[in-house]
Design a protein around this nucleic acid. Structure first.
Length: 305
DNA sequence: TATCCAAGGTAAGTT
DNA sequence: AACTTACCTTGGATA
């Protein structure tokens, strides 16, 4: 076992681990106490969180287990790899300069309230295939159930990894999900999303397309590229671009942000997804508009107004 | 206890 | 291109 500490003072703008992994951006992290995405979130905890890095993103080509918690002035970590700090920095965007991002955000009352409430929350940089599947599954789903579905997919189809005497499960590879039948996936309570996930996994396996390819494209072309996957429309594509592929300007138009637009920025509603997205993106400052979206999403979903 | 409803939407079919 | 509708499942609300 490898372990260490990353001083919080090194993170410009601070860091709120719980808000980061429990704000509905990522579904690859878990808490051993079963409290993830509980209706009444157990705020203020210093719980350990864990994830399994896919073999494709590790130096050993084996899945690696990462655990961390926010303790006294530091992010404490334990992992199966000594290179956990660089992985955590990448996954949790610890090198984003939050102070600069907030400073570059327009002074809108709603945004200021959200940034005030959840200061230190960062976007995540999820492995792309897991992010793609997670958000395909997110259609018409509650956040807590999306998380449950992803955990079940990992246990049913992913590789088991033993670390520190416990068993963890990696998120399934495209091969593993492509090999599953629609019936298998429906068994995991995916409902009508089952064939979407199976066919999308097949597209990746067969080399038809890969979400990472979108990185090479301009933002709106990248969104268009991702919609070729089955079960991926403009909203899901924006989520993957924002939470995995470094397009911090992406503003997914989900039900919460649509409600916010209707209430606070009605002039930004231009009818079509593409036009409304473009307009609200500019209202939220362009370059880091996705950060603003995520703060607003979490703020509203947890009772803010 | 039974029914209803909405949950981070998308695909397919119509106008 | 814009507009409708069907779609699995389930926890929580309502009767």
């Amino acid at each position: 076992m490898h372990a260490g500490r990353l001083p919080v003072t090194e993170f410009d703008g601070g860091f709120d681990l719980q808000a980061t992994v429990e704000s509905g951006q990522t579904y690859v992290w878990d808490r051993p106490d079963g409290g993830m995405f509980a209706d009444e979130v157990a705020w203020g905890g210093d719980a350990w969180y864990h994830t399994v890095l896919p073999a494709t993103e590790t130096e050993t080509s084996e899945p690696e287990v990462l655990r961390c918690r926010l303790g006294n002035e530091a992010l404490e970590w334990e992992a199966s790899t000594p290179r956990a700090p660089e992985h955590l920095t990448r996954l949790l965007r610890l090198d984003d300069d939050l102070d600069a991002i907030v400073a570059a955000t327009p002074e809108l009352p709603l945004l200021e309230r959200a940034y005030e409430q959840y200061g230190g929350m960062r976007l995540v940089r999820d492995p792309s295939f897991a992010s793609l599947v997670s958000f395909i599954c997110s259609a018409q789903m509650r956040v807590s159930r999306i998380h449950g579905m992803q955990g079940r997919l990992a246990r049913e189809f992913g590789d088991a990894v033993t670390f520190d005497g416990r068993t963890y499960y990696a998120f399934p590879t495209p091969d593993q999900l492509a090999a599953a039948s629609e019936a298998d996936l429906r068994e995991c309570s995916l409902g009508y999303r089952a064939p979407y996930v199976q066919r999308t996994a097949e597209m990746v396996t067969e080399g038809v397309a890969h979400p990472d390819e979108a990185r090479e494209l301009a933002y709106e072309d990248a969104r268009e590229y991702l919609t070729q996957f089955v079960g991926v429309g403009e909203k899901v594509a924006d989520c993957v671009l924002l939470f995995s592929l470094d397009f911090l300007e992406a503003v997914p138009l989900d039900t919460w942000i649509r409600t916010a637009i209707e209430k606070y920025y009605p002039e930004c509603d231009r009818g079509s997804y593409a036009e409304t997205s473009r307009t609200i993106r500019e209202r939220f400052g362009g370059e880091y508009a996705g950060y603003a979206q995520t703060y607003v999403f979490f703020y509203l979903r947890t009772g803010g107004e």
